[in-house]
Amino acid sequence: MTDPHPTVGLDDVVHQRTRLGVLALLNSGVTLEFGALRDTLHLTDGNLNRHLKVLTDAGLVSTERRGAGRPKTWVAITEAGRAALAAELTALRAVIAAAEPQR
Results as ranks from 00 to 15, higher is better:
17 R>G: 00
21 G>W: 06
76 A>L: 01
38 R>I: 06
8 V>I: 09
37 L>H: 00
15 H>K: 03
30 V>D: 08
27 N>S: 14
26 L>Y: 11
66 R>S: 07
25 L>H: 14
36 A>G: 01
54 V>T: 14
98 A>E: 13
11 D>I: 10
87 A>M: 06
33 E>K: 15
3 D>N: 11
27 N>E: 07
79 E>R: 12
102 Q>A: 13
92 L>C: 01
8 V>L: 09
17 R>W: 03
26 L>K: 12
17 R>S: 06
52 L>P: 06
97 A>I: 06
25 L>A: 15
103 R>Q: 07
66 R>I: 06
6 P>E: 07
11 D>H: 12
66 R>D: 04
88 E>I: 05
102 Q>L: 14
8 V>K: 09
31 T>A: 13
23 L>V: 08
32 L>Q: 13
13 V>F: 01
38 R>Y: 04
76 A>N: 13
3 D>P: 03
91 A>Y: 09
69 G>A: 04
95 V>A: 10
67 G>K: 12
25 L>K: 15
14 V>L: 08
11 D>F: 05
85 L>C: 01
2 T>P: 14
99 A>N: 11
28 S>M: 01
23 L>C: 08
55 L>Y: 03
9 G>C: 06
87 A>P: 01
55 L>N: 05
25 L>E: 15
50 R>Y: 04
34 F>Q: 04
43 L>S: 01
13 V>M: 00
76 A>P: 00
4 P>V: 10
28 S>W: 06
65 R>S: 14
65 R>F: 05
13 V>G: 02
100 E>L: 10
33 E>N: 12
79 E>V: 12
16 Q>K: 00
101 P>F: 14
82 R>Y: 00
89 L>N: 12
66 R>E: 11
39 D>F: 05
